[in-house]
């Protein structure tokens, strides 16, 4: 039950994040990424073009539940990168747009709390999925 709730929660978040970015020009998202001042222009443009489709794929994967452990690990890895960048930027005192769900959300302790919670949820889902997969493999091999 917990696994299902986590899976649907994360699927919803990833799908909404992808939708909010894909509905506007990729350059709007590129400007959000650029405001972090971490990447050169070519990398900003590459991330702006590839990240939203990647979020969409992960969102769909989580929603369907097929090969769950891989999608859960991918979601955890992506959220870990996001959270690290947010934490680093907030620590530097940057007053920037989070860019998490399109434009308009200032980076704040609330953003960090939300992303931290999502990271924990993705970590738990990944752990549960990997354990379930290991149990399934073990039971198949002992039969």
């Amino acid at each position: 039950m917990l696994k299902l709730v986590l899976r649907l929660l994360l699927a919803g978040v990833f799908l909404f994040a992808a939708y909010s970015k894909l509905k506007q020009s990729y350059l709007v998202f590129a400007m959000s990424i650029d405001s972090y001042q971490l990447l050169p222009e070519w990398a900003v443009l590459t991330v702006a073009r590839t990240l939203p489709p990647l979020e969409l794929i992960i969102g769909v994967g989580l929603l369907i539940g097929w090969k769950l452990r891989y999608f859960a690990i991918a979601a955890f890895a992506m959220l870990l990168v996001f959270f690290s960048i947010l934490l680093f930027s907030y620590g530097k005192g940057m007053t920037i747009d989070c860019g998490c769900f399109g434009v308009g959300e200032a980076l704040s302790p609330m953003t960090l709390a939300r992303d931290g919670t999502l990271l924990a949820a993705a970590g738990l889902l990944a752990k549960l999925s990997v354990s379930a997969s290991d149990r399934s493999t073990h039971s198949t091999s002992t039969q």
Binding site: L27, V28, A30, I96
Partner: peptide, 19 residues
Amino acid sequence: TQPIAGAISYAIFRRYIET
């Protein structure tokens, strides 16, 4: 109207203005 926040670089901003 599109809000854009932060100190963005001209190179990226220019691309958006051109579109």
